[in-house]
């Protein structure tokens, strides 16, 4: 409930909300970890940038959208889909990525730790 004013031990500043185009993504460095942050349907969603199938750090460069009612990111390498809200892979439910909470304060996007 307290507005996060800047990067602190609770959250890391990503960028201005306007910098991310609708349906676009960026990659943020959060406490040494790579996080992919997307703007989709009025939400700001964050998930690991790591693609476990190609083992490359690239998810922020994939295409977002929805499949059967779930908001998803498609890996830019081999096109597996990950649910942006739960991190679960649609093609292989054994694989789950970490999702991150986000917050927008004064037009700035933050990823919470």
């Amino acid at each position: 409930m307290n507005a996060v004013a800047q990067t602190n031990d609770l959250a890391t500043q990503v960028c201005e909300l306007d910098f991310i185009p609708e349906h676009g993504g960026v990659c943020a460095l959060v406490e040494g970890q790579q996080v992919a942050v997307f703007k989709l349907g009025g939400k700001v969603l964050a998930i690991d940038n790591y693609d476990p199938f190609s083992e490359a750090y690239v998810l922020s460069r994939g295409i977002v959208g929805d499949l059967k009612g779930q908001l998803v990111i498609a890996s830019p390498v081999y096109k597996q889909h990950f649910n942006l809200e739960t991190g679960v892979c649609l093609e292989d439910e054994e694989v789950t990525l970490k999702t991150w909470e986000t917050e927008v304060v004064d037009g700035i996007v933050y990823v919470k730790h």
Partner: peptide, 17 residues
Amino acid sequence: VLQDTNDRALANMQKNG
């Protein structure tokens, strides 16, 4: 945001990104 992997960076993505 519509462009497929390669077009988005105007270059061909390799296996390690």
